[in-house]
Design a protein around this nucleic acid. Sequence first.
DNA 1: AATATCGACAACCGCGGAAAT
DNA 2: AATTTCCGCGGTTGTCGATAT
Length: 305
Amino acid sequence: MGHHSCCNQQKVKRGLWSPEEDQKLIRYITTNGYSSWSDVPDKAGLQRCGKSCRLRWINYLRPDIRRGRFSKEEEELIISLHGIVGNRWAHIATHLPGRTDNEIKNYWNSWIKKEIRKPPTPQMTVPLPTTVELLPPCYFSDQQGVLNQDLTMNPAMFSSPCPIFMFENGLVAGIGGVNVQEELVVPKIAGLNSNGWHTNSHLVQTPSPLLPFMGGVDSNYFPPLVDNMENMMPLEVQSCRIDEDGGDQIAGECIERQQLIEWVESQGCPGFLIWEHVEGQLGGQGIPSASSNIEAVLASYPSSL
DNA sequence: AATATCGACAACCGCGGAAAT
DNA sequence: AATTTCCGCGGTTGTCGATAT
């Protein structure tokens, strides 16, 4: 039948939960547990749908829940993780014991509103040259699985000369003492293993011929490099990790900074840029700094600049 | 003083996919 | 194997007290 018919019969109560309802639900769940949420309401004597009961228990009544303001460490972790995985609230919540996806989502949505009304920071604006016609052509090779299907199927998208690769280097290590090492991944132009990256964290193609790709893009961290994110084209990417000191590799998925650099250079691309989050800035502005100067990258285009 | 807006948080909704029938 | 039911997720709306106009 209709796919989803929960919560729309009459006589099913909705809206905020009363203390009495809470007590009924708590009593039932603590004595019986839940095997099937859909028959919890009947057995517990509640005029709710199972879904509502589940939500109430998961997000509010269950005993191991933690409430109150987020700590500084939690805030930093949320912001950092969001910069990497995007709006995957449930995933982010797994790194914050006792917190729910809903709570984190609410936090983010109000946090982001505050950030948005702040004026952009000056050093984030990078002047881009307007004349690019003289740049030598540089196309991607399809060898070694470098290109994904979208790329090969639509070569017109990649007629822009001289791509500059940009990578976002996850976040600082060991933040708040929480081990998020496995999250320290950066996108790489490669095969189809997107490994759960959120769409807006994928490598994207920018409208600028000089900066055709940006990796790990979060528009709130990297706003001014391009005028509008709408024109960007999400691409499937493979995750890997830039590891400055060579430690803590992730089996099979990690390439180190030097490898990354070599790989980019092997593509015949003269420039690349690695953004790095800087410790201490994540909770404040969430502003990255560039490890390699974009001016130096642009200087590698002698014919036009 | 009255009302509009804001902000934090709670809850709802549709969807995709898993599980059950 | 096909269809229905259920679960969990993420976007969105609702609620209500606080703050601003």
